[in-house]
Design a protein around this nucleic acid. Structure first.
Length: 351
DNA sequence: TAAGCGTGGAC
DNA sequence: TGTCCAAGCTT
């Protein structure tokens, strides 16, 4: 393959066809970094409104470094993978304290920051700092697996290095920033996972997969197994002031540090669910539930497991000692994951 | 290395 | 409804 021709045609295509996106207004490393974190495993259309709001709330490194924990979680509410925003907060505080507020411009230093792996490091270094570093994401592996007919399993972590070497050998040293973005843009708009638009691809004459007519068989990716279902019972409890009882989830693991209604795991075969609910609730909160009513079921699929939650509403006459009671207005300031929002919607509907 | 970690859209 | 994701990182 003629590398120079490949670079020129890819870059020309990008100049004519790339999307106007809010993180492409300038090369502010902070803005680039935030976009890269948000875009991890997340679609562009989903990210845009979150990104706009985030930049209004936290326009600079200093603003985000000084932000409260609850506010930074709220900025991420509904985006998923919440450890991303905790790690980003840690990273930006680090930058603020030890790097004079400037995102590091060396692979060595930027890679030390929490939540910044090989892809994000390469993306910031190339896009914001014009350094010829590979930024190998799913797009790049898909595009390169087709162009160069690379048949390694891209589901395996070790495979990324093969693509990094290939990008290293083919990247434009004159404009690595545009080059890396163009590879990803091509993957997003032309070289898509299914039904790639090979007939309008600017480099189809240099694509080994297209030449052989095997673009639909690449990349090779082994399937991930789907997780099992966990069953819960959960209760939206109201006191005499109309306040609701919420609790903070553990600081590690699934939906860490987010808020939820009291809930208890049950066996799938469990009968007398409301009786079990009362016993578990009274043990945890030492308070009596009355007027317990089933209000529906919430089924939520995560990437690795499924929750099936039987939801109840109930009242307490006397406030229980533990737990946090909030008005519905206050509730809006706490970060609720999507399944908990679904439970709240059931409560509102049945009120 | 493989598993854990969210969500909403496309097919 | 089920499957496969989408600009990955941590442990």
């Amino acid at each position: 393959m003629n590398i120079n021709k490949f670079q020129i045609e890819l870059l020309q295509w990008y100049e004519l066809n790339h999307r106007q996106l809010p993180w492409r207004l300038n090369k502010d490393p902070y803005r680039i970094l935030v976009s890269e974190i948000m875009l991890q495993q997340t679609r562009v259309e989903t990210v845009i409104p979150y990104y706009e709001r985030f930049m209004n709330w936290f326009p600079t490194v200093k603003d985000f470094a000084e932000a409260e924990e609850e506010k930074i979680l709220k900025s991420w509410e509904g985006l998923g993978y919440y450890s991303r925003v905790r790690n980003l907060h840690s990273a930006i505080k680090e930058v603020s304290e030890f790097y004079e507020g400037k995102i590091p411009n060396t692979k060595e230093d930027i890679s030390k920051l929490k939540g910044i792996g090989p892809y994000t490091a390469g993306a910031v270094l190339s896009i914001a700092y014009d350094k010829p570093e590979p930024a190998v994401d799913g797009n790049v592996m898909r595009v390169y697996s087709r162009i160069f007919k690379i048949q390694e399993d891209i589901a395996k972590p070790a495979t990324r290095k093969i693509f990094e070497k290939k990008v290293h050998d083919t990247i434009s040293n004159e404009d690595p920033s545009t080059f890396n973005q163009a590879l990803m843009e091509l993957g997003a708009l032309i070289c898509t996972p299914t039904s790639p638009k090979c007939l309008i691809c600017p480099i189809n004459d240099q694509c080994q997969a297209f030449i052989e007519g095997i673009q639909d068989q690449l990349p090779i990716k082994t399937k991930m197994k789907k997780g099992k279902t966990i069953h819960y019972v959960s209760v939206v409890v109201e006191n005499e002031n109309g306040e609701l009882l919420i609790q903070k989830r553990a600081s590690k693991g699934l939906l860490a540090g987010l808020w939820e209604f009291p809930n208890y795991e049950i066996k799938e075969s469990e009968t007398q669910i409301s009786t079990q609910l009362i016993l578990d609730f009274e043990e945890q909160y030492n308070g009596k539930l009355i007027d317990i009513k089933p209000i529906g079921t919430v089924k939520h699929k995560f990437s690795h497991l499924t929750w099936e939650v039987q939801v109840f509403s109930a009242q307490v006459l006397q406030n229980v000692k533990e737990g946090l009671w909030v008005s519905e207005k206050e509730l809006a300031t706490y970060t609720l994951p999507i399944p908990v929002q679904k439970m709240y919607e059931l409560y509102v509907y049945h009120k």
